[in-house]
Design a protein around this nucleic acid. Structure first.
Lengths: 203, 203
DNA sequence: GCCTGATCTGGTCACTGTCAAGATTAAATT
DNA sequence: AATTTAATCTTGACAGTGACCAGATCAGGC
């Protein structure tokens, strides 16, 4: 009956949830701090105390986004038969994340608004990058192979997130992944017998 | 001495030029119609008569952007020794454009603001896509090969445009392209003797 | 019980996109 | 040539935005 208490109690989390919803509803380019505040049921200036300015909130969202991104890849990698299969599955996860959360994908990989000097964001991004390097190292690959795997996975995922590749839209998830598999296998370094028997492990 | 005439004469072009400058200066996410008008020296509502709303202007910019994009690829392809070399050079052009005009690149490939139902924009985008298909067809490739070449070129270009791939930033243009060459050659379909001797032609 | 500091509100300012009404001028019509 | 028509451009308004500030509220330490 008391309406609302003056202090929310856990406004930071509430704002974070509201911000994620706003981001998926309206996209980055019309993301609004005031809308987030309204959604969370607080005054328009409340978010400033927890995230600084708008970019601060987007930076926090981006850190979380990188973590979610990596979780999606991890989930897809379980059950991989070898290092090669694991890298391909990671590519599936990349594409899955981009299609399931296109705006979050954009925030992470395309937006200039998150502050990429933020330690949290740097750490989250580095975790994902190190994981990628681990995948390629387990295949006996090197720098060029990292670039090849990353670029191809990212390219498909980005084009899919932006719905720019019509060829991909007409396909079922299974067809998409079959296509992606052939493309990715071509990108990976040649099978090195010394590595092919080692089970895939995270770096 | 007459100050400015009431009618600009060629305001549409002037706004277009100003809009391009504003886009590169401030990026898509803080692109402002009023700023464009100010830059062109007209009132804040003048652009509406030529481009409708803000998205209309961005749509026009995107059409032009696709054309410029294709021109960059074309310029790089001259002097190619064979179809294979030509596809690789197109990839160089892709990356070059992304690094030289990152915001225009983003407008074309990542933004939701241009109206992709616009006939002009569709036509410009299709021209670029058809050209890509032509490159792959000249190699004897098919759908999966189109996806492979596009995804890899796009992936590197997009990551470079967003400065997300640190490995790439430390390199000279020559080093970057050497790296890209090895990656792209791996993506292309196996050399088909029937096609390898046919000089590269546009579709 | 009081005080300090964190949390949250409400107000304000400059800026934004869009709309409507009017001023100016070019082009078409008669 | 005179007049009507239509396009161009300006001015003013409104709601929404991010950022800033002063003040209200309240939790926890003293």
């Amino acid at each position: 009956m008391d309406g609302k208490p003056y202090h929310h109690g856990d406004l930071r989390s509430a704002l974070f949830v509201a911000a994620e919803a706003e981001l998926t509803d309206r996209g980055i380019e019309s993301f609004s701090l005031r809308s987030v505040a309204k959604r969370a049921g607080v005054s328009h200036a409340a978010p400033a105390h927890h995230f600084g300015d708008t970019n601060g909130l987007l930076t926090a969202l981006a850190s979380e986004g990188f973590t979610r991104f990596q979780e999606t890849l991890d989930a897809r990698e379980v059950g991989a038969t070898d290092a090669r299969d694991r890298a391909v599955r990671a590519g599936f996860g990349y594409l899955e994340f981009a299609m399931a959360r296109p705006t979050l994908f954009r925030l992470i990989f395309s937006s200039v608004r998150p502050d990429f000097a933020s330690p949290d964001l740097i750490a989250a991004a580095n975790r994902a990058y190190d994981h990628l390097v681990g995948l390629v190292t387990a295949l006996g690959g090197h720098e060029a192979d990292v670039i090849a795997l990353w670029a191809t996975s990212h390219g498909i995922a980005d084009l899919a997130a932006g719905q720019r590749m019509r060829t991909l839209q007409g396909k079922s998830p299974a067809e998409r992944e079959a296509m992606l598999r052939t493309v990715l296998l071509r990108c990976l370094p040649d099978q090195d017998p010394e590595f092919s028997k080692i089970p895939a492990r995270s770096l």
